[in-house]
């Protein structure tokens, strides 16, 4: 445990040192005012923005969009993955598509989605969903592949019904891979929605960052940027902690 403490302490120290170094460089004018503002100024701006309530609408809009895209991606991805697992012929046909999916820079389709759905939240949900769902499909396939055959045999020996087998044997055994998929789906949905807003949209946090940049409001831009990056790190970290807790409980049981 002492080593883990040392690792965590070093990590925090490293972050703190980076923060201070950046602060010093900015204050000393080595990094110009136009390039980057001191980190403390970013924090102050972020707090002011949050307290004033002027970005509350954007926050709600962005996170609602992410939540819809994320939930849709997990549900759709899981169902599609399970269906593909049950149909090996179809799966073999779709396999090259899945393998090449993330090789294509997905955002080049975003303008097309805007043309299809109009300039509202629908293309944002669509890009988040399209970006996140295949990760869930792949994770589901992997998870179902890795269920040890002996467990299925065991279920048959106990004469479990189909639903019971899935609920009590297959799903728990596939859980680690499924969680991995959920975590990836969240990261992709978050990236997809924010990037979509940044590229082309009429509202939301990504749009606010782009807007502040284009109107030369560097302070505001860095405040918003800090908030978005912090939310990404905190939410991804929360999912990670939740996952490791659940998995640890499983191995102990």
């Amino acid at each position: 445990m002492t080593r883990a403490h040392a690792v965590a302490a070093t990590r925090i120290g490293l972050l703190l040192a980076g923060f201070l170094a950046l602060e010093a460089l900015c204050r000393a004018g080595i990094i110009g005012k136009l390039v980057m503002i001191p980190p403390t100024a970013m924090v102050a701006e972020m707090t002011a923005l949050l307290a004033s309530g002027e970005i509350t609408g954007d926050i709600v809009r962005t996170f609602t969009t992410i939540a819809i895209a994320f939930a849709g991606a997990v549900a759709l991805g899981f169902v599609a993955g399970a269906a593909l697992h049950a149909a090996p012929r179809l799966r073999r046909a779709v396999d090259p598509l899945l393998a090449a999916y993330y090789a294509v820079p997905g955002f080049i389709f975003y303008p097309l989605l805007v043309a299809l759905f109009g300039l509202n939240v629908l293309p944002l949900i669509a890009i988040g969903l399209l970006f996140a769902a295949p990760a869930m499909v792949i994770a589901t396939l992997l998870g179902l592949d890795r269920v040890p055959p002996v467990l299925r045999k065991c279920a048959r020996v106990h004469r479990l019904g189909r639903a019971e087998t899935v609920l009590h044997v297959v799903l728990p055994a596939a859980m680690p891979a499924l969680f991995n998929g959920i975590r990836l789906a969240f990261a992709y949905a978050f990236i997809g929605v924010i990037a979509g807003e940044f590229i082309l949209s009429g509202g939301g946090l990504g749009y606010a960052i782009g807007y502040a940049y284009e109107s030369f409001e560097a302070t505001r831009m860095y405040g918003l940027l800090l908030f978005v990056l912090m939310m990404a790190v905190v939410l991804n970290g929360a999912l990670y902690v939740w996952e490791t807790r659940l998995l640890r409980r499983r191995t102990r049981a």
Partner: peptide, 8 residues
């Protein structure tokens, strides 16, 4: 890896 780097 998980942050939306487009905003950077």
């Amino acid at each position: 890896y998980t942050i939306p780097k487009v905003t950077l």
